[in-house]
């Protein structure tokens, strides 16, 4: 068997902050994952469809513009709607602590905020991926 963890790093919405997403994408690559990066301005529909076609194990979204309460749950619903039941969905960016419980309730497995070492993200994925 030659299994690799596959991750879609996605930028939903109009947010242009991509420094973090790109850093995370590269760190995941260096941790041995196969990483597809969507680039900016992707709709939740595009992200879910790409996740399905690529059969990724993880959808990793980055939002710093404050649109996460709207966009994160939408992506979760669409990804699950495609039958991707096992896909681990995580998020990161500038996300106020107070918003995190609602995001988790909506199906975001974990939220990573500024200052997180990328190693911690790698560990989280390795531990929780199905």
């Amino acid at each position: 068997m030659d299994k690799r963890i596959r991750v879609l790093v996605a930028k939903p919405g109009l947010d242009g902050h991509d420094r973090g997403a790109k850093v995370v994408a590269r760190a995941l690559r260096d941790a041995g994952f196969e990483v597809v990066y969507t680039g900016l301005r992707q709709t939740p529909e595009q992200i879910a469809e790409a996740a399905m076609q690529e059969d990724v194990n993880v959808v990793a979204m980055s939002i710093l513009s404050g649109a996460h309460p709207h966009l994160f749950p939408k992506v979760v619903d669409l990804v699950r709607g495609k039958g991707m039941k096992d896909c681990l969905i995580i998020g990161g960016g500038v996300i106020p602590e107070g918003d995190i419980p609602a995001l988790k309730a909506a199906g975001i497995a974990e939220v990573f905020t500024p200052g997180t070492p990328t190693g911690k993200i790698v560990e989280f994925i390795k531990t929780n991926v199905k």
Binding site: G13, L14, D15, G16, T43, S65, G66, A67, P69, H70
Partner: peptide, 22 residues
């Protein structure tokens, strides 16, 4: 806000969730 910076009106579907945010 981002819709304004990218040339979309507030009622554009793509602006959903972003209006007045940043």
């Amino acid at each position: 806000d981002l819709p304004t910076q990218i040339g979309y009106d507030s009622d554009d579907p793509i602006s959903e969730g972003e209006v007045g945010k940043v």
